[in-house]
């Protein structure tokens, strides 16, 4: 019964990613979109949280349109994170049993 968690605020500014990851089951998916895509960059102060989550089995995604909007290229994103487009976002919501939005 997996859950899709979505986070739309930057982890440098809010604790929503931290809260999300702390209550995520290991079969969960976490999608970063809107300002939250900046949290997926390499070599940042929050990279550790992402590496740890991925290590526990959590699947991490970021919305490519939001990365592109902010001038952040695919190579800048941590390898633990899979990029999805809007149709991919929809697919994730369908594949999971529920969606938890960390507003």
């Amino acid at each position: 019964m997996p859950t899709l968690h979505t986070v739309n605020k930057s982890a440098f500014e809010r604790n929503s990613l931290e809260s999300c990851l702390s209550v995520c089951k290991t079969d969960a998916s976490v999608l970063l979109f809107e300002d939250a895509v900046v949290s997926g960059l390499q070599n940042t102060t929050v990279s550790n949280q992402i590496t740890q989550a991925a290590g526990s089995g959590i699947k991490l995604y970021a919305l490519s349109e939001d990365l592109k909007a902010r001038g952040l290229s695919e190579e800048r994103v941590m390898p633990e994170i899979t990029l999805v487009d809007y149709p991919g976002f929809v697919k994730l919501t369908v594949e999971n049993d529920r969606v938890q939005n960390w507003l």
Binding site: S64, E65, D66, K68, A69, R70, G71, L72, S73
Partner: peptide
């Protein structure tokens, strides 16, 4: 940041 392209998010 350089190279911003928000067309895909309609901005």
């Amino acid at each position: 940041t350089r190279g911003q392209d928000p067309e895909g998010i309609g901005m």
